[in-house]
C-alpha cells in the first residue's frame, strides 16, 4: 500500500507547494515512485513549480467527477523516473471535491506507488478537509514567524482530532543570520512550542527562487543547502536516520561580541 502524506500548514506562503515539489522529487531521485497531488482547487500551483504546466490534460475534478480514471489523469515527469503529478482544477472551486472523493481517489491509485504526497491549500476549510481525508501521515510546514507557528499549532490540533497521529514538522525559510543574532525564532524554540518531532529544517535560500523561476525543483541540483535539506527530509521519510544538516552561517566579529553580551544579560 502506498504511504499517503499530507503537506499542510494553515498559513499560506510558508512553502507548502515548494516543499511538496521538492520532497516528491527527492523521493523519486531516491528510486521511489511518487504521486504528488495538488488539492488546491482554483489556485493550482504545484504544476508550475514542477515545470509541468504545459502538459495538463485532465485534473483532479475530472477524476472525482468520473470523466477519467485517476491513473489516466497522472502526468509523468519525463525528466525524472517515478514522479507523477495529479494537478488541481483551475476553473472549479473547492466544493467540487469532497473528502469521500479524495479517499476513493487514493484507493483508485492502488498500491503501485511508494508515496502519495498531497499538497494542502492554506486555510482550515473544505480544501483542508479534502487534503487530509485520505492521509495517514502529515508534514506540517512552518516558518520562524509568530503567525506561521500559531497556525501550525492549530493545524496540529485539527490533524490530531482527525486521528492523524504521525505528524512531523518542517521549519522552512530559516534566516540563520537572524537566528544567530537572536532576532528570529530558532528551530528549538519552534519544536519547544509545538511539541512535535522535527523532520527537517530548510534555510531561506535564493536557489529556491531561481529554480522555481525555471520550473525545476531545487533538489534537481544537489549543491545548494536547501536542496540538501529537502533530500534529507526525503531520506527521513523513508526511515533513514540522518543527523540534522548544519545550516549555521559564519558570524562576523561584532555579532559574536553582541551574542556574548546578550547571553550575560
Amino acid at each position: 500500500m502506498s504511504e499517503v502524506i499530507v503537506i499542510t500548514s494553515g498559513k499560506g506562503g510558508v512553502g507548502k507547494t515548494t516543499s511538496t515539489a521538492n520532497i516528491g522529487t527527492a523521493l523519486a531521485k531516491l528510486g521511489k515512485t511518487v504521486v504528488v497531488i495538488d488539492s488546491d482547487i482554483g489556485l493550482r500551483n504545484l504544476d508550475v513549480v514542477l515545470g509541468l504546466e504545459n502538459r495538463i490534460v485532465f485534473d483532479i475534478v475530472d477524476v472525482t467527477s468520473g470523466n477519467c480514471t485517476a491513473k489516466k489523469a497522472l502526468i509523468k515527469d519525463r525528466r525524472l523516473d517515478g514522479l507523477y503529478l495529479l494537478p488541481a482544477a483551475q476553473t472549479k472551486d473547492k466544493e467540487a471535491v469532497s473528502p469521500e472523493n479524495m479517499i476513493k481517489l487514493v484507493e483508485d491509485l492502488g498500491d503501485e506507488f511508494d508515496y502519495i504526497l498531497i499538497d494542502c491549500p492554506a486555510g482550515i476549510e473544505r480544501g483542508f478537509k479534502n487534503a487530509i481525508a485520505a492521509a495517514e501521515r502529515a508534514i506540517v510546514v512552518s516558518t520562524p514567524e509568530v503567525s506561521a507557528v500559531r497556525d501550525a499549532d492549530r493545524i496540529i490540533g485539527l490533524l490530531e482530532a482527525n486521528d492523524i497521529k504521525d505528524i512531523k514538522l518542517v521549519v522552512n525559510m530559516i534566516k540563520m543570520q537572524m537566528v544567530q543574532r537572536g532576532d528570529m525564532l530558532s528551530i528549538d524554540d519552534i519544536t519547544d512550542i509545538l511539541a512535535i518531532d522535527l523532520i527537517g529544517a530548510v534555510p531561506d535560500d535564493e536557489a529556491v527562487v531561481i529554480s522555481t523561476n525555471k520550473g525545476e525543483p531545487v533538489v534537481k541540483d544537489e549543491s545548494s543547502l536547501s536542496a540538501k535539506a529537502f533530500i534529507n527530509i526525503a531520506k527521513r521519510i523513508t526511515g533513514e536516520d540522518i543527523p540534522l544538516l548544519d545550516i549555521s552561517v559564519p558570524t562576523n566579529f561584532m555579532d559574536k561580541v553582541l551574542k556574548i553580551f546578550k547571553l550575560s544579560k
Binding site: 537566528v179 543574532r181 532576532d183 524554540d189
Partner: peptide
C-alpha cells in the same frame, strides 16, 4: 530582550 524571546513569549 532579543526580539525572538519576545516572539516566543507572545506565542
Amino acid at each position: 530582550p532579543s526580539s525572538k524571546n519576545i516572539a516566543k513569549e507572545r506565542l
